[in-house]
C-alpha cells in the first residue's frame, strides 16, 4: 500500500453486509482498494468470500453498506445509485470477472476468437478484421497458439480455457478484475504457469484485482494485501507477507499452520 499512499482509492467498500434470510453471508466488511493493487480474500469454504466478491462486483445486491467506485472521469460513484444499464456497461468495459469454472465465463458454443472479440463488439466495434487482429494478439498474450483461434473452448484443456477467459476479460482494458478461485481445479504445474501469467499481466497493465482464494500460496504470489475471513467477517487484514509470516488472529495462525509442507 505504501506506494499508493497519495492516490485516491479505486474502490471503497464500507460496512458491506449481505444476509441470506436470517443467515449471514458477510457482515460489516470495509476496505479500500488502490489503483494497481491486488487484494486477496482468503478463508475457508463458507466464510463469505464469494458472497463478498459477488456483492462488490455488482452481481448481487448487498443488504446494507455502500460500495463506491472511481469512474474513469475521476469521480467516486456509489454503485447502488447506478442504473442497471450503467452497471452492466461498467461490468463489461471497466471490469472483468474470472470465474472458477471457465465454462461459466465463456461462450462454449462459439470459437475462441469470438469469445475474445465479444466485448469489443459489445462496445460497438464493427470491423471484423480489426476485431480478429485484437483477439489474435490477446490469444498470444495468454499463450494460446494462434491456430486455435477458430476452435471452440470445448476443445481446450482446463488451463487453456482459464487463460482464454482471462483474455476475454482483459481485451477491453479493464481497470479492475475480480477473480473467484482462478486456479481452482487446475493441477499444480498448470497453476504455476497461470499464476506467472496473471502476475505478468497485472504488472504490465497496472490492473487492480480482488482475488478470492482458499489457497494461501496463490495469495502470496499474486497479492500485496490480504483479508482473512471467517463466518462472514473480516478477522485480519494487512500486507500479505505480514499476515502470512506473522499472523495475529488465532484463526489466521491456524490457517497458516495448516498448509501442508512438502
Amino acid at each position: 500500500m505504501s506506494m499508493q499512499d497519495n492516490d485516491p482509492p479505486l474502490m471503497r467498500v464500507s460496512n458491506l453486509t449481505h444476509m441470506y434470510g436470517d443467515r449471514i453471508g458477510c457482515r460489516d466488511v470495509s476496505f479500500d482498494l488502490y489503483p494497481g493493487e491486488v487484494l486477496a480474500v482468503v478463508g475457508e469454504s463458507g466464510s463469505g468470500k464469494t458472497t463478498l466478491l459477488n456483492c462488490v462486483s455488482g452481481r448481487q445486491h448487498c443488504t446494507a453498506g455502500t460500495i463506491s467506485y472511481r469512474m474513469r472521469d475521476g469521480r467516486l460513484q456509489d454503485l447502488n445509485a447506478l442504473s442497471e444499464a450503467e452497471r452492466r456497461f461498467l461490468m463489461r468495459t471497466d471490469w472483468g470477472f474470472v470465474h472458477q469454472n471457465p465454462a461459466d465465463g465463456l461462450r462454449m458454443n462459439v470459437s475462441a476468437g469470438a469469445n475474445v472479440g465479444e466485448r469489443l463488439m459489445a462496445v460497438g466495434q464493427r470491423h471484423y478484421g480489426r476485431i480478429r487482429e485484437t483477439a489474435d494478439d490477446w490469444l498470444g498474450r495468454v499463450e494460446i497458439s494462434h491456430d486455435r483461434i477458430d476452435d471452440r473452448p470445448g476443445t481446450f484443456s482446463g488451463g487453456m480455457r482459464q487463460r482464454l477467459q482471462i483474455a476475454r476479460n482483459l481485451v477491453t482494458g479493464p481497470r479492475l478484475v475480480f477473480m473467484d478461485e482462478p486456479t481452482g481445479g487446475l493441477d499444480v504445474s498448470v497453476q504455476a504457469r497461470l499464476l506467472d501469467l496473471l502476475r505478468g499481466l497485472v504488472d504490465d497493465l497496472g490492473l487492480s484485482a480482488i482475488v478470492v482464494t482458499h489457497d494461501l500460496a496463490v495469495a502470496r504470489l499474486l497479492s500485496q494485501r490480504m483479508m482473512v475471513m471467517k463466518d462472514g467477517q473480516v478477522i485480519e487484514t494487512g500486507l500479505t507477507d505480514r499476515v502470512l509470516d506473522d499472523p495475529q488472529a488465532p484463526y489466521t495462525q491456524l490457517l497458516v499452520s495448516s498448509i501442508l509442507q512438502v
Binding site: 462459439v110 470459437s111 465479444e118 463488439m121 462496445v123
Partner: peptide, 10 residues
C-alpha cells in the same frame, strides 16, 4: 446487441 455480432463473427 453486441452478442448478435458474435454470431456473424462466427
Amino acid at each position: 446487441y453486441g452478442v448478435m455480432h458474435v454470431k456473424l463473427y462466427e
